[in-house]
Design a protein around this nucleic acid. Structure first.
Lengths: 208, 208
DNA sequence: ATCCTTATTGAATGATCGTATAGTAGATAT
DNA sequence: ATATCTACTATACGATCATTCAATAAGGAT
C-alpha cells in the first residue's frame, strides 16, 4: 500500500512566525547574551545563538550582516541595560551615591553579567566593530560619572579632579566585579560596595 | 625528460629537531601565550599554536594530553612569570612598596599581558583545569600580598584587616590593568600606580 | 480573495576545529 | 655501527565553524 501524504498542516498553524526586523534583532541579541553568559566567546556561535533564539541559521546574516556586528549589538545592549539600571537607581537615590549603589544592584553586579562583560572585553582588541562601540559607550559612562562627582564636590564646596576620579572609580568597580565574578566567595557584594564608597568618601566626605 | 629525484638531504640537515619533553612543553606554552596575546581565546587553536612553535599538529596532544591542559599550563606560566617579576622588584624595593611597584613594571603592566589575562579569566568559568589552576595561584598571591600588608602595618604599629585590603588591592590593580589594556590613552601607567599607593597610604601612611 | 513585500528557512559550501594514530626519524647508549 | 627509545610528523577523521543563496511562506495591504 502506498503511503499517503498526510495533510500538510492545519491552516491555523503556521510553520514559523514572522517578526519585525527590530523585534527579531532584539531576540537574537538576547540569545547572544545568553550564549556569552553560558560559555564565553567560544559559545558565541551562529548555531548556538540561532538555536537559543528559536530561529534558523540564516537569520543573523539577514538582520546583522555578520556575527561580528551582532556581537557589537550585544555590547550596546549590555551597556544600555546597565545605563537604564543606573537611571532607575538615581531615581531612588539621587546623585553620586545612587550611581555607586547602582553598580551593586543584583541585576548589574552578578556572575552572569560579568561573564558577558569578560567575553566582550576580550574581543575588543580583535573586533573593530566592538572597539568603536566600546569607545562611545565608555565615554558616555565616563561623562556621567564625572558629572556626578563634580556635582557632589560642588555641593560640599570641595575641589577634585572629577575626570581622574571617574576613571579610577570605573577601574575599581570593574576590578571588584571581576574578582566577585571569578570567585564570589573571595569578595562579597557588600565588601565591594563598601570599598567604592570608601574610595569617594576619602576625598569628598560622607556621601550618605 | 623525466624529473630526477633530488638528493634527499644532506646527512647534516635533519628534518626536525628533537627536544626534551620539558623543553618542548615550554615552547608550546610560549607559543600559546603569543597566540592568546594576538587574538584572545579565539586564536588559541592547535593549528595556530603549533605553527607558532614550529611544530606539527600532534605535539600538543603528545605533551599535554589536550588543548585544555595546555591552556592551564599557560595560566601557570603567566602567574609564575608575574611572581618572579614581583620577587625581583622586592629585591630592589623590599616590602609592600616593592610589590606595588612590581604591578606596574613594564613586563607586567602592558597591553599584551592584559589581553592574555583577559582571555584566561574568560575561560575560568568554562574550563575545570583552568579553574583549579587559578584557585591555587590566586591564594598564593593573596597570601603574599596579605603578609606584606601585615608587615607594613606592624612596622607602623597600626592595625588593619590585611586579608581584606589584599583582596581589594588585587581588585583595584586588576581593574586598572583592565582599563589601561583596553584603552591606554584613558589611564596612564603612572596614574594607575599612584592610585594603588594612595589606596594603601590612606590606612598605612606614607610607604616611600 | 489576491497580490506583494520581505522575514525566514534550510541545504550547500569550503574552511577550520581538536584529536587519534600509524609510521618516521633524531638522539643516545651500547 | 647497531639497537632502542620516544619525540615527532603527517594524514585522516568527524564535528563544527560562518556565510551564501535560492526557494518558501507569513502576514499586511489592496
Amino acid at each position: 500500500m502506498m503511503t499517503e501524504t498526510p495533510p500538510e498542516r492545519s491552516a491555523a498553524a503556521p510553520r514559523f512566525r514572522r517578526y519585525s526586523g527590530e523585534t527579531r534583532a532584539a531576540m537574537l541579541v538576547e540569545a547572544g547574551l545568553i550564549c556569552l553568559a553560558r560559555g564565553g566567546i567560544t559559545a558565541f556561535t551562529v548555531d548556538n545563538i540561532c538555536r537559543e533564539a528559536g530561529a534558523s541559521r540564516g537569520l543573523i546574516t539577514h538582520h546583522f550582516g555578520s556575527k561580528d556586528r551582532l556581537l557589537a549589538a550585544c555590547y550596546a545592549a549590555m551597556y544600555d541595560r546597565m545605563s537604564a539600571s543606573f537611571s532607575a537607581a538615581e531615581q531612588e537615590t539621587p546623585g553620586l551615591a545612587g550611581l555607586i549603589e547602582a553598580n551593586f544592584a543584583p541585576e548589574v553586579f552578578n556572575a552572569e553579567s560579568l561573564r558577558v562583560w569578560l567575553a566582550l572585553w576580550g574581543e575588543i582588541a580583535t573586533s573593530e566593530a566592538l572597539r568603536s562601540e566600546h569607545r562611545a559607550r565608555y565615554q558616555d559612562y565616563l561623562f556621567r560619572m564625572s558629572r556626578a562627582i563634580s556635582d557632589a564636590a560642588d555641593a560640599r564646596s570641595t575641589r577634585v579632579n572629577a575626570h581622574e576620579l571617574a576613571v579610577l572609580f570605573i577601574a575599581l568597580s570593574d576590578g571588584l566585579w571581576l574578582e566577585h565574578g571569578i570567585d564570589p566567595t573571595m569578595l562579597s557584594r557588600e565588601a565591594a560596595r563598601a570599598a567604592c564608597f570608601a574610595f569617594f568618601e576619602k576625598s569628598l566626605g560622607p556621601l550618605r
